[in-house]
């Protein structure tokens, strides 16, 4: 039986480029990115004139969080459960999961991330428009979980993207995820429009 290589097999050049991209990302992601929460302590330094504008903008932002689709593993099922009728995430203004990162402002990282997948997740994050937030969902999202010492698992999403809220659990119950989202909404409520700039 003759094997038709032309249609089935990808170019080795593509493999090499992908491998180089992964190695480069791995090399520069050895240290976790600090959580973007220093400004939470800077309450007194804020400009008083902008508070009502802040209040309106933060209210708008926190009331319509649209998550991007980034569900590499099993935590996705708890996220789906949280979206479905029993737990009903749409109560918090986030009933739409956006397939396009351009329309999303929240990334819920539901699942184990491997280094091979990491460039894609980083790319989705980079494509999301500011302002954007990240919830690390589950043990794998926080620290790599039980797979932490594996040869190709990213030990926590905060090695490649800055994480705002951590929701522990393996997997977290939908209630825990909703609590995490409420925490994020409280965080957004305190935000100053001039502070939330790209942390990278």
């Amino acid at each position: 039986m003759e094997v038709v290589q032309r249609y089935i097999y990808s170019d080795t050049e593509l493999d090499r480029t992908e491998g180089e991209a992964i190695e480069a990302l791995k090399a520069r992601s050895q240290q976790p990115i600090p959580d973007p929460d220093k400004w939470l302590d800077e309450e007194l330094e804020r400009n008083i004139l902008l508070t009502s504008l802040d209040a309106i903008l933060d209210w708008a932002r926190r009331s319509s969080l649209w998550p991007a689709i980034c569900f590499p593993a099993c935590c996705a099922f708890e996220l789906i459960a949280a979206n479905a009728s029993r737990f009903d995430l749409s109560r918090f203004g986030m009933e739409i999961l956006r397939a396009s990162p351009r329309q999303a402002d929240l990334m819920i990282t539901a699942g184990t991330l491997t280094w091979k997948m990491a460039p894609q997740v980083k790319r989705i994050y980079d494509q999301m428009a500011e302002p954007k937030w990240v919830i690390a969902m589950g043990a794998c999202g926080i620290s790599g979980g039980i797979f932490r010492s594996s040869y190709n698992v990213v030990p926590g999403y905060n090695h490649i993207i800055p994480v705002d809220v951590y929701v522990p659990g393996c997997p977290p119950r939908p209630e825990a995820l909703i609590h995490g989202i409420r925490m994020l909404q409280n965080k957004i409520a305190k935000e100053h429009i001039a502070i939330k700039l790209s942390p990278l």
């Binding site: 290589q5 097999y9 493999d15 992908e18 491998g19 180089e20 992964i22 091979k116 040869y151 190709n152």
Partner: peptide
């Protein structure tokens, strides 16, 4: 084999885990 290369891990990975 017509295409003997890595399938799960990336090109350039060291070792066979």
């Amino acid at each position: 084999h017509p295409n003997m290369k890595r399938i799960f891990l990336w090109d350039g990975f060291q070792g066979h885990p």
